[in-house]
Simulated assay, not measured.
Amino acid sequence: MATNRVIFLVFNSVHLLDLAGAVTVFYESGCCGKHYDIHYVSPSPNPQTSSGLGITNVDPLHSIHVEKEDIVILAGMEIAKWNRADDKLWIPWLQNAAAQGATICSICTAAFALAASGLLDGQNCTTHWAWTAALQKEYPHLKVIENKLFVQSGRIFTSAGIATGIDLALYLVEEQHGVAFACRVAKDMVVYIRRDGMEVQNSIYLQNRQHINHHIHQVQDYITKHLQHKLTLEELAELVFISPRNLTRLFKSATGVTIGQYIQLLRQEKAKHLLKEKYKLAWIAQECGYRSSAQIRKLLKEV
């Protein structure tokens, strides 16, 4: 039976985006027609985020009995403020969850918690690139894999953190409801695809967003959400109330590529991702904004 319950284990000094990114995926899944029952538990009665924001409506660990169909997600926390005095509270709870056969996931530095619980002993895993060496050094019996978005070992998943928690959550949604539905959720979140776990901790989408031009960000968001449609320069320019010529100049200056190149790179990356899932070429072509399956067959030779 497919699960509809996701339980977030929240440590004190949790990183807000590590938590919120994955939560939003399951929330948006509900908005798209596939509901998840989301719960939050913590060894702390009133956990604080690493940015100082307090969290309420968090249940005590003993109030939730984890079952096989559940998904348990540990959000990353600030390691320097991680209170190990709580180990006796959450480690037995987490070990019991794993013993029940639940899917266990960590985002970012929460891989350290999975390691401390013993659930990663001898397993492949990953974490944020800045912490892979420290994780391997502190827990030498693990097999820490660098520069991967997320790693699966049985029903245990570890992700690189920050935005990659979104990729992992989308993967879990896709497992249950299929790639077409996961793509719909991704579109609603304007992330355009679920990146594969074997991809490096970067993407075309992220590579070209390292700028601060609000108008160009707005155009990029529009492109990712409407990638399946024919996009014109005039349409994009009207969106941000500047001339097509000025938009062309600003886009290239901010991203390093032209608008046409950017659209093509996004379509290629998304198509190559969907090709790995063995879906019909006609559907992939439509989803990625290509005119025919012939263009997808050409890409197929490059995958």
Rank of each mutant, 00 (worst) to 15 (best):
A115R: 11
N147F: 06
T103Y: 12
L265R: 13
F112E: 07
D86R: 12
L274N: 00
H229K: 12
F112V: 05
A169Y: 04
A271M: 01
G52Y: 11
I38P: 14
L247G: 00
M1S: 14
A110H: 04
R5A: 03
K148H: 13
K298W: 02
A22D: 13
W131V: 11
T126H: 11
G161D: 06
G260Y: 03
E302D: 15
L19H: 03
A282D: 15
G101Q: 09
E174S: 14
H226I: 02
S44F: 08
F150M: 09
N147D: 12
D188C: 08
Q48G: 07
H141E: 15
Q176C: 03
N246V: 13
A85F: 09
V10Q: 00
A75V: 14
V58A: 02
W93P: 06
G122D: 12
F11M: 08
D121G: 09
R5F: 03
L74F: 09
Y290D: 01
T126K: 05
V25Y: 07
L265H: 06
A110C: 06
E174H: 10
Y139V: 07
E138N: 14
L170A: 10
R184I: 05
K280N: 11
S159A: 07
V179N: 04
L239E: 03
L231R: 04
Q264G: 01
R297D: 10
Q218M: 10
R194Q: 14
N57L: 08
R195V: 00
P45W: 02
A98L: 03
S153Q: 08
K34E: 15
R291K: 06
I166E: 11
A186Q: 05
V191I: 11
V185I: 04
D37F: 10
S13T: 12
T56H: 09
A22I: 03
D59E: 14
K68T: 13
L227S: 13
A113R: 04
A102V: 06
L17K: 01
C108R: 05
T258D: 03
T255M: 02
E269K: 01
C125N: 13
E28L: 10
T248C: 02
I162L: 12
I156S: 04
E146A: 11
Y192C: 12
S293L: 05
V219R: 01
P45K: 13
W82F: 11
Q48L: 12
I166C: 04
L53A: 09
N124Y: 14
T127H: 12
G101T: 09
I216Y: 01
H214C: 03
T127W: 13
E138Q: 13
V151A: 06
P244A: 01
K68N: 14
K68Y: 05
R5M: 05
K187A: 07
S42L: 04
G178N: 08
V14Q: 02
E234R: 15
P45R: 08
I38Q: 15
I64Y: 10
E234Y: 04
I7A: 04
I204M: 11
K225Q: 14
A130Q: 13
K225E: 14
T248Y: 00
S50G: 14
L275E: 00
L274R: 00
Y222N: 08
C125S: 14
Q95D: 08
T258Y: 03
